[in-house]
Structure formats: C-alpha cells, structure tokens
Design a binder for these strands. Sequence first.
DNA 1: CTGTTAGCGCCTTCAT
DNA 2: ATGAAGGCGCTAACAG
Lengths: 340, 340
Amino acid sequence: LPATIRDVAKLAGVSIKTVSRVMNDEPYVTEETRARVTSAIRAIGYAPNISAKRLAQNKAYMICLLMYPGFYQPGSEMLTRIMDIGYEENYDILIQPYFPAHARSKRKLVNLIYEQRIDGFVVTPPLDDDEFAGDMISTYKVPQVQINPYKRNETIPFVAGDGFNGSTMMTKYLVKLGHRRIGFLSGPRNMRASNDRQIGYQAVLLENGIEYDESLVCSSEWTFDGGYTMCRLLMEKSPRPTAIYASNDEAAYGVIFAAQEMGMSVPGDISVCGYDDLSLSKNIWPGLTTVHQPSDEMIERATRLLINLLKGKTTEETNIILPSYLVVRGSTGKPPGSGY
Amino acid sequence: LPATIRDVAKLAGVSIKTVSRVMNDEPYVTEETRARVTSAIRAIGYAPNISAKRLAQNKAYMICLLMYPGFYQPGSEMLTRIMDIGYEENYDILIQPYFPAHARSKRKLVNLIYEQRIDGFVVTPPLDDDEFAGDMISTYKVPQVQINPYKRNETIPFVAGDGFNGSTMMTKYLVKLGHRRIGFLSGPRNMRASNDRQIGYQAVLLENGIEYDESLVCSSEWTFDGGYTMCRLLMEKSPRPTAIYASNDEAAYGVIFAAQEMGMSVPGDISVCGYDDLSLSKNIWPGLTTVHQPSDEMIERATRLLINLLKGKTTEETNIILPSYLVVRGSTGKPPGSGY
DNA sequence: CTGTTAGCGCCTTCAT
DNA sequence: ATGAAGGCGCTAACAG
C-alpha cells in the first residue's frame, strides 16, 4: 500500500498540513522543518495521490487535445514533446479524436466536460469551426486555445501558421523557375490555412502578370486520394500545367504517385510541390519541395499557452503567428523544354 | 456549478446511495425508483465526478500506453480506435513516450506509478526488454500486457504478430520470382519481430538450397537512414543482390530512396520489399511490396485485454498471436535479365 | 429494497 | 510558523 501524507507527517513529527506546504512549495515553513519533511518524503517514497488532489482542488489537471483525425497525424516527436510539457507542468494530456457531426464524438465531448475530466482544450482545425464543439466549450466556459482557427477571434487565444506568406514564397519560387501554368490544389473550405495558401498563390500570379486560370485550380480533401484524383484531372487540360502546387504534402504525395503512374518523370516532365513539410517529405523520392509549417511547434506552443492560462498567467501573448519557410528538394525544376 | 449526487438524490427523493446504485447498474432497486432517479439524472444533467470516483474506489481508471518513440508511430486511425475503447470502458488512455535509459523517462514512469495514476500498462517493443521499466512494473505489481515481447513469458499476457510465417511468405515470393541473391536488413537485436523475420528468411533460403551469404545480411536500425545506408553498402557487393528485403517498411523507404538516387530503377534494376505495411507503403511510388502486420489490431487487442483483466475477467486468452499476410505491390519484380 | 455512516487523501480555512 | 477541523463527491460496509 502506498504511503499517504499522514505517514510522512507521522515520520517527520509534524502535521499533515505542514507536509502539504512542503509538497506545494508554500511559504511559512522553517528551513529546518522543511528539511525534516523532505527527508521523510524521500525515506518512504511518498508521492501525492493525484485523484485526491484533483478532488480537493476541484481541478482535473488534465487537458484535452481535440483532434480531427483526417488532418492531424501526431508524429511521435510531437507526442513526445507535448507529453513532456504535460509532465513538467503536472498535467495529463488526453488526445481525443473528434469527427464533426458524429454522434459518438459529441457524446464523448459532452462526457468529458460533464464529468469534469478536463480543464481546457487545445482545438485543432477544422474543429474550431464545428458548431457543436464550439458551443459546448463556450457554453461551459472551458478554456481553450485554437490552432489555425478559421476565424481569428480576438477573445479566443490561438496559435497559427503564416499560410499567406509561406504560399507566396512557394509560388514566387515556381514562377522564378519559369512556370506559368501552375495547377493548384486547394483544401477544405473551413480551414484557414487552406484559404491563406490559395490567396498567397493568387497574389503572386497577379503580381507577375500571370492570368489566373480557374480551370487550373481544384478543390479537394487534403489527402493522398484527393491529390491523386486532381492530378489525373489536371493532366487532361491543354496545354498541360508544367507544375502542380498541392497546398498540403499528403495531397502532393498523391500527385507524385499519379504522375509517375502515368509514366511522367518528376520533376522532368512536371514539377510537384506541397505544403506543411511532413516528416516523410524528405524521405520519398524525389524529395518533396514544400513549405515548412512548424506544426509541432504550433501544438507545443498552444499546449504551453493553455496550461499557462489555466495557471493564471495573464501576461501571455495569446495571438501567436509562427513564420514558415521554403524547403527546396528534388521534386521541382524548370519547366520541360526550357533549356538545360 | 455542476450537479452532484446529492442534488439528484434530493430531486428524486431518495438517498445518495440509491442514486449511486442506479448510476452503477447495481441490483436491488425497484424499477419504479430506478425510473425516478434516471429522470432526475437527466433533468439536471448529472454526471459523476470522475476524481471522486477514482478516490473512493482507489482506482485510476487510466491505463498507460508505454511507447518507444523511434518505433511506434500511432496513426490517427489507431489513436481513434484505442481512444474509443477507452471511452466505452470508461478508462482514460495515457500515451507515454519512453526512451530506454533516459533519466527523464524513468522519472516519469516512477511518478506515474507512485502517484497511482495508472491501473495498468500496454508495453510496446522493445520496452518489454528495458530493465528499469520491467523492474518498476513488476515490483509494484502493476498489471501489463506486452506487444511483441522479446521473451514470451507465459505469466505476462501478450499480443504478438507472426513474424516467422510472414517472413517466410515474403522470402518464398522473392525466390519464386527468381531471386537468388537477396539482401536482408535485420533490425534491433532486442526485438522479437526482428529475429523472427530473419529466421524466416534464412529458413526459406535453406529450404530452396540457396547458400546463406552473410555478407548480404546487414543489421541496422529500423529507420529510413538505416535502410538508406545499408542499401549503399549492399550495392557495393559483387555480384550485386537482385533484391533487398528490409525487415521493416521505414527502412525499405530508405532503400528505395538510395536506389533511385543511384540511378537505379525499382523494380527494374532491383526489387525492394519491406515488412509491416505502414499506411504509407501503398502511397509511395512504386507501391511497396510488404507483409501486413496488423499493428493497429495488436494494440487494440492489447488494450482490450488489459482493461478486461483489470475488470477481473479471467476467462480471457492471454497469449494472442495474430497472423500476417503478404501484400504485393509494384516495388518487386523478376531479377534483371531474367526474361519474362 | 433502501438509507446511514464512515472513510478515500488531499486541500482550505481559520485558530493558535 | 504550525495545526485542527471540515469538506471535496463518491463508494463500501453495514444497518434497517
């Protein structure tokens, strides 16, 4: 049977309250008593029972990462980092998949809130745009931090990427290589990143006097299949595009697969690029040219921010936008027939 | 402020114990009382405070998935499935990355156990072979289920894949295509799956009268870089192997990358195959021939098994071995120069 | 069948 | 600077 606060108190010859003070780094304990208590704690290997602490303080010491399964695949590095944060800050982190409009997901969310399991949420896109989840979280006044929210609400803390500038860099790079007909795959409509990236693309075309050809822009899911399908469609246009810019790496993988399946060489016959810089993108052949969005850091920052807010730190910056940068690899090159 | 069991009792005109009985589906409540209580519960939207329940019962209602970060990347489907199980069974699931021999990991594990946060562990390879974790878990008699353990200990429940048979299928397939010089990348020594797969490879060579050439077998990490490096080494042998069998998909990606970087065509100049059937393996070009190990199902079964054991179900089968099957895609073909 | 009582282990409040 | 008493919301054990 594990030691309790009473065991420590007895051994150290003090009251349980004093032990509690030492455990929680509260003031008003003489150095001498503190030392005595500390050694008693070590002697019997005491650790506070977390459930009791939670009950007494009416806090869950648990935050929830509400995750849209189709979109976020938390790599193990990210998991490691956020679990580390949780450990440091003494919060458990619950990773909860949530499918918009699924009854089961709704029930789970309701339970999490009703049973007071959760002190706060980190909300990943596009769940910030889910009516039910949004209503629940705001009705019950559960603190939240949103990642890349569709609508930036000044009152809701968020961490976002800079999709517009990132997309601008990518499009400029393609134009500089000599591409004029650049197919673009946009993503879900209710995701801020999707819109930002498309606007960046359009802005650079305009800037360079390239006509915006709507037939070269397709909307699809940010998935392998989405990219695959769109590539096959785009290749039927004439003249063909010389480059395809998928606004997400997974979709770009689909594009590359389809292109090679059609017997085209990447980047010889067609350049392909993505956005996000998933860890895999450097490991496929040819390496994928893409824009690095610091997704891991975004989630990490969001988690830290949420915990700090829960701890009452009010000096935090609550509207965080992180920069992106271009990553050039082997999947892009000059348009075919342009020399070299 | 959320409703408590007392509020329900008052509204229904019964004692709190009766409400407790209804909540926990205990017997000895008249249908009529039960109905009255049930409607009171719905009326005020009562949900039991989980921390109080945990404290009163001295149970954490939380299990831990102890995960080796380099090896397991839980896809979002897997996360969804295990979180679903947790939801159904009313257990929280903590995903805890653990690096063998890291002081920080050790401390985290100790805390999890000391603070009684955890009712049981699902242990992923190769952590079953980690001395510290093993000692902690067994010393404190925390229930566990191991996945693909290195040593199958009859007393510790486990869920495993059938690496020997899977590897046998793959090697037979390569031999049947006409390959005789088959490079093999084996993985970490303290992983059961790694050994099983290598033994399967050797057994089939023997069976077919193919000499076992040690210089064609390399040991590396099951990573992209491991595969990349080994491919470059193997290509210096003469005569060259006509196929490379990486005993893990990630390593196979590295092999494919290196081969293409050296200007070789896959499978025209060299066949490449892997093992595991990660979700990505169908999405790279060419699609990766591999053996499907039902990793998601393994983790799911292990989680279910652990929870059932915690709930006292003793009729469970505690030594589970799941079959594998061959998946042929585009990365393998006949050896070069073998005609049709 | 139902209710009463006594904790679970900690924290909070208020004395001292 | 320290301690005593009461309570968090629930369940277990026992009494009716």
